[in-house]
Deep mutational scan, measured.
Amino acid sequence: MATGGRRGAAAAPLLVAVAALLLGAAGHLYPGEVCPGMDIRNNLTRLHELENCSVIEGHLQILLMFKTRPEDFRDLSFPKLIMITDYLLLFRVYGLESLKDLFPNLTVIRGSRLFFNYALVIFEMVHLKELGLYNLMNITRGSVRIEKNNELCYLATIDWSRILDSVEDNYIVLNKDDNEECGDICPGTAKGKTNCPATVINGQFVERCWTHSHCQKVCPTICKSHGCTAEGLCCHSECLGNCSQPDDPTKCVACRNFYLDGRCVETCPPPYYHFQDWRCVNFSFCQDLHHKCKNSRRQGCHQYVIHNNKCIPECPSGYTMNSSNLLCTPCLGPCPKVCHLLEGEKTIDSVTSAQELRGCTVINGSLIINIRGGNNLAAELEANLGLIEEISGYLKIRRSYALVSLSFFRKLRLIRGETLEIGNYSFYALDNQNLRQLWDWSKHNLTITQGKLFFHYNPKLCLSEIHKMEEVSGTKGRQERNDIALKTNGDQASCENELLKFSYIRTSFDKI
């Protein structure tokens, strides 16, 4: 039985969820670079991206490699990797027998973001014989899940209580170790020597080791999670996991709180800001991140802002960003909400898709409305799209047979046209069989910064309504002859009103 693990408890099935942008060198404390989270699957090609990484700022997932063999891993080693800020997950990587050479110096898994409450997941690794993470000293947050690894031993010899604050939620089941077939031998045991430290858990006094050649490092209890030197002297209180010299914040392997210019500090002093819960960055760093993602459509890219001495992905609820200094300031009234469309555009074809934009005031991208039916549609669209004030790209209304009016965009005031449909149009209306009105132009103002209007096959939309939009939106004169079809717009509506004058002759039985 794995020490510190839980057996036999019912657990939810383990679901495996399925960018080499360097964020800056980590400095003297770390020998390499800070790398983003990685999802490495199918083959070993991307694994080489770990070569210079000291910190993975995010998670590391290595999974679904069915053609790899043990010899493929023999020359692979990433000794610079010290810390993973989120979680480490391995799933069905064939041929991998140990992690001792792959990650010989991995010391800390912070667990800032977890995989279903777990910071370390080893699942269905069919050839893994031992973990071998002999320098792993601290899992700051989260638990361990090690399950269905039929060859995995050296679990009962690990004292997880020396690595985690609590072992109650560890789930370590259905491994070879369960069948008591392992016969784990710690260093020196074969020669009758006791080389590794022994600890007591559940009444068992057991030597602690990761492999037959690597003991588990056990520091004096007084050192807590700070770690200790090879001689057993406690590291500085700002260290986490390990250090090369005692009581020196510049000799830590990793930091308990924050890293700044080669030393570990309790908090980031001005003019620095907390970033990702582990390091200090200056304003320029946060500003660069903001600008890199301002026009990016890459998933996970955030326009970072500053709030409460932190550089964070977005302002919290009730705050909006001051564009001059990136500071989050309290909103006066309802907060603006910028919604970034991942692929640059979004099609609204149902109430469900409209709900995804609920509360958005600025759309960074283009909207395509293609709704053919739905219950209580006008009210639903207004509830979900009615706060949109600005669209950076274009607005396209296409084959939306259920629409009679666009009044559900009740606050839309600006279409920038930074991206144009077919390279020309910022407003595009095609084949809307029941569209009769755009907006009530006596109450609604709309500016279209650039781009043209396109109207074709809107049989109940009168040309007068379209011409009014040209005047109000500032697009009059931009359109070419064929942009607004004269014969297919309003051709099934009563669009022309003329005053009919009647004269009559009164007659009676005795007068003409």
Rank of each mutant, 00 (worst) to 15 (best):
D101T: 13
P70N: 08
D247I: 00
I82T: 07
K224L: 14
C53T: 00
T157F: 02
C215F: 05
F66W: 03
T140P: 05
A119I: 02
Y94K: 02
M65S: 09
Q276H: 02
V55S: 04
L96N: 00
D75T: 10
C239I: 01
Y319F: 14
I163K: 00
A198H: 09
G95T: 01
Y87P: 05
E124V: 03
G241R: 03
P70K: 15
V144Y: 00
R279F: 06
L327D: 02
V34L: 06
L60K: 01
E231W: 10
E97H: 14
V206F: 13
T68F: 01
E207Q: 10
G132V: 01
D277A: 10
F103R: 01
N42A: 02
S143C: 08
L240D: 06
P270W: 13
G333W: 15
N175P: 07
T229I: 11
L89H: 00
A119Q: 00
G232S: 11
T107D: 02
L332V: 09
P70D: 11
D39M: 05
C209S: 02
P313V: 05
C331M: 01
N138G: 05
G142T: 00
F78K: 02
K251M: 13
R113A: 03
R263L: 11
T194P: 08
P249I: 05
L76E: 06
R92A: 02
M137F: 08
E151S: 07
I172F: 07
L47E: 03
G32R: 12
Q216G: 05
S161D: 13
V55Y: 11
H302A: 13
L174P: 09
M65H: 08
Y171L: 05
G318L: 02
D39V: 00
E130Y: 13
V121I: 06
K193A: 10
V173G: 07
R279W: 04
P36A: 09
I163V: 08
D39G: 02
C268I: 01
E124A: 01
S323F: 04
H28F: 10
E231S: 12
H212W: 09
Q276P: 05
T189G: 09
R141M: 02
G232F: 04
L174V: 11
T211Q: 04
H274S: 15
D169R: 14
R263V: 08
S98C: 05
W160V: 00
T267L: 06
T211A: 13
C264K: 00
I222Y: 02
M65W: 00
C328Y: 02
C335Q: 01
K224R: 05
M321H: 15
S161M: 14
W210N: 05
Y259C: 14
F258Q: 13
V206G: 14
R298W: 14
K224M: 10
Q287A: 15
V265I: 04
T68K: 04
L155F: 02
N42W: 01
N170H: 05
V144M: 05
C234H: 01
M83G: 02
I158Y: 01
Q303G: 10
A230Q: 14
L64Q: 01
H302N: 11
C182S: 03
S77D: 03
Q287K: 06
G300H: 08
C331V: 09
S237Y: 08
K251F: 08
G32S: 06
W210Y: 04
G142E: 00
L106R: 02
V265Q: 07
G227C: 02
G95I: 05
L136H: 00
E180F: 14
N170K: 08
Y319R: 04
Y272P: 08
E33V: 14
C328M: 02
P104K: 01
D247S: 05
C315E: 03
P79K: 07
D39S: 07
N202L: 09
T68M: 06
S225D: 03
E231L: 10
T199Q: 10
T320C: 08
T189R: 07
S244F: 09
N282R: 15
R256P: 02
T250G: 13
E180D: 06
G32V: 10
I306A: 08
S225G: 08
I109P: 00
Q287V: 05
G37H: 03
C293Y: 07
P104M: 01
S317F: 14
L29A: 12
C331L: 02
D72G: 04
G111T: 00
V281W: 00
P104L: 01
L102K: 01
N43F: 13
I201E: 08
N309L: 08
T107K: 02
N202A: 10
I146W: 00
K176P: 03
C234Y: 00
G203V: 07
P336Y: 12
C255S: 00
H226K: 06
P316A: 04
K176A: 04
R69L: 03
L76A: 13
N242R: 12
C311R: 04
H302D: 08
N149T: 07
I139S: 01
P187S: 05
F78R: 04
P336R: 07
Y154S: 05
S237G: 10
K176L: 03
G241V: 02
I84T: 00
D72F: 07
S317D: 08
C53I: 00
T85L: 10
G333V: 14
M83R: 01
D288W: 06
G183C: 15
S77F: 11
C239N: 01
C293F: 05
R141Y: 00
C234S: 03
K100Y: 04
A254T: 11
I146D: 00
R256K: 09
T107A: 05
F73T: 04
V218D: 08
Y118I: 04
V126T: 01
H236K: 02
I139P: 01
L155D: 03
D169P: 14
L174W: 10
L64R: 01
Y134H: 01
V34E: 02
C255G: 01
A198W: 06
G227P: 06
C243L: 02
D277Y: 07
W278Q: 05
T329F: 09
S317M: 05
E207N: 03
C301F: 05
